[in-house]
Computed example of a mutant assay.
Amino acid sequence: MERWAEYRSELGRRGETLAARYLERVGMWILARNWRAPDGTGEIDIVAREGPVLVVVEVKTRGSLRYGHPVDAITVRKRRRLRTLGRSWAHAHRHPPTPMRIDGLCVLIDRGRVLLAHERGLR
Rank of each mutant, 00 (worst) to 15 (best):
E2H: 10
E2K: 13
W4C: 11
W4D: 13
W4G: 09
W4A: 15
E6K: 13
E6H: 15
Y7A: 10
R8Y: 11
S9Q: 15
S9L: 13
S9D: 13
S9P: 10
S9A: 15
E10W: 15
L11G: 11
L11T: 07
L11P: 04
G12I: 01
R13P: 09
G15D: 06
T17K: 10
L18A: 04
A19V: 01
A19E: 00
A19Y: 00
A20H: 00
A20I: 03
Y22V: 06
R25E: 04
V26C: 08
G27H: 11
G27F: 14
M28W: 01
M28V: 02
W29E: 09
I30S: 02
I30C: 03
I30Y: 06
I30V: 13
L31F: 04
A32N: 05
N34S: 09
W35P: 03
W35K: 05
A37E: 11
A37M: 12
P38C: 06
D39Y: 14
D39S: 14
G40L: 08
G40H: 13
T41H: 12
E43M: 11
E43S: 09
E43W: 12
I44G: 05
I44D: 08
I44H: 01
D45F: 10
V47S: 05
A48K: 06
A48P: 00
R49P: 00
R49N: 02
E50L: 02
G51R: 05
G51D: 03
L54D: 06
L54R: 11
V56H: 05
V56R: 01
V57C: 09
V57P: 07
V57A: 09
E58R: 04
E58Y: 13
E58P: 07
E58I: 07
V59S: 04
V59C: 00
V59F: 00
K60I: 03
T61N: 04
T61A: 14
S64N: 14
L65A: 10
G68T: 06
G68V: 01
H69G: 01
P70E: 02
V71H: 10
A73V: 11
I74C: 05
V76T: 14
V76R: 15
R77S: 15
K78C: 08
R79L: 07
R80A: 10
R80K: 14
L82E: 09
L82H: 08
R83S: 09
T84L: 09
L85T: 08
L85I: 12
G86I: 14
G86F: 11
R87L: 11
R87D: 06
W89M: 07
W89A: 07
A90N: 09
H91A: 15
A92F: 08
A92I: 05
R94Y: 12
P96D: 10
P96V: 06
P97L: 08
P97R: 05
T98L: 14
P99D: 12
P99V: 07
I102M: 09
I102Q: 07
D103G: 06
C106G: 13
V107N: 03
L108N: 05
L108M: 05
I109E: 14
I109W: 02
R111V: 03
R111E: 05
G112K: 00
L115Q: 09
L115F: 11
L116T: 06
A117S: 15
A117V: 08
A117P: 02
H118W: 04
E119Y: 03
E119S: 04
G121S: 06
G121N: 01
L122F: 07
L122S: 06
